[in-house]
């Protein structure tokens, strides 16, 4: 059984910027341990001479013409914003 501690669950939740309740921490600790055990299977293979694949197509340098195009009007850019202040998205203070 791959183990993940309570502190590790809280650590990845912080990395992922997700607040978890105590109940969620307990539930996810068990579920993440089961998932990690299942995916740990990848370590069984001898992969010493195998390069990684990040992407299934062998394309590189897909250039675009460096030509300016129209942008969305600002009112549309902000149409879904939870909080707008003029031409800025407003958030609580950092």
């Amino acid at each position: 059984m791959a183990r993940i501690t309570r502190d590790e669950v809280l650590h990845v939740a912080r990395l992922a910027r997700i607040e978890l309740s105590d109940d969620e921490v307990a539930k996810f600790q068990e579920q993440l341990a089961n998932i990690l055990e299942a995916v740990s299977k990848v370590s069984e293979l001898d992969l010493s001479d195998v390069p990684p694949t990040a992407h299934p197509l062998e394309i590189a340098n897909a250039w675009a013409e460096d030509v300016p195009r129209d942008c969305l009007p600002l009112d549309e850019v902000f149409a879904n914003a939870p909080d707008r202040d003029g031409d800025y998205f407003r958030t609580p203070p950092a």
Binding site: V12, I18, V39
Partner: peptide, 25 residues
């Protein structure tokens, strides 16, 4: 969370890096 774990320092090679090699296989 699984993704953040697999990409995090100390686990990247064992999980994400290995999975990318399995993808080649």
């Amino acid at each position: 969370m699984i993704g953040a774990y697999a990409l995090s320092a100390g686990y990247y090679d064992a999980y994400y890096g290995t999975a990318q090699k399995v993808r080649t296989v």
